[in-house]
Every structure is written in C-alpha cells, then in structure tokens.
C-alpha cells in the first residue's frame, strides 16, 4: 500500500497501483494514471470504456471482466487491445479507479 498523487489529489493505492477507495476517483485521476501507464492522451473510446466500467461496477458490485466490457460497452475486443495494449484486463479497471477484476475472461 502506498500514497500516490494523481491529478493533484493524494490517494491510497495497492502494490499494483489500483485505487483502494473507488469513490475517491475523479476523471482527472484517470488522465494522470493514463500518463503514468503510457496511455495518455485518453481518447473518446477510452472514456466510453471508463464510463461503462464505472457504471457496471456500481451496478454489479465488482469490476467487469474483459469479455463483459467487450460485450456490453460498445467497444469490441480487438479495439480494447488497441486502446490498452499493455493489458486491457487490468488497465481498464485501474484507470477507472476500480479493483483488479477477478474474472479470467
């Protein structure tokens, strides 16, 4: 666990960089995490994925797996890998301020 500063705000993150408190997430933080993980600048498609992940997690109580994102967000699997080349399974959740998804698909 450590404290990091994202978008001018100090937040607690775990060893893998996932926010501990998803309520503390702000869009500015997503930009800052994107910068840190080499994804910046975020495009409209990234924001579409982020919006879906936050909404779905609020509804379901857990971060969506990648297959779920590809099926329901309107951004397909191939595109997800283009948007998050370093691993969409983890990065989509991390940038959305959610915990690492538990789903393997």
């Amino acid at each position: 666990m450590s404290i990091r500063s994202y978008g001018g705000q100090s937040v607690e993150v775990n060893d893998e960089g996932f926010l501990l408190d998803q309520a503390s997430w702000t869009p500015a933080m997503a930009e800052a995490i994107a910068e840190e993980t080499g994804l910046a600048p975020l495009t409209e498609k990234h924001w579409k994925v982020i919006a879906f992940c936050r909404e779905d997690a609020a509804r379901e109580g857990q971060a969506p797996g990648l297959r779920r994102i590809a099926k329901l967000s309107g951004v397909d699997m191939k595109e997800l890998y283009k948007l998050f080349p370093k691993g969409p399974g983890k990065l989509a959740a991390r940038i959305s301020g959610l915990p690492k998804p538990t789903s393997c698909v």
């Binding site: 399974g89 983890k90 698909v105």
Partner: peptide, 12 residues
C-alpha cells in the same frame, strides 16, 4: 485457452 487469455489481458 483461459490461461492464454488471462496472460493477454495482463499484457503478456
């Protein structure tokens, strides 16, 4: 196949 998929989702 699931292991392969999990690896790709992690950027491997």
């Amino acid at each position: 196949l699931i292991l392969a998929n999990a690896a790709r989702m992690s950027g491997i």
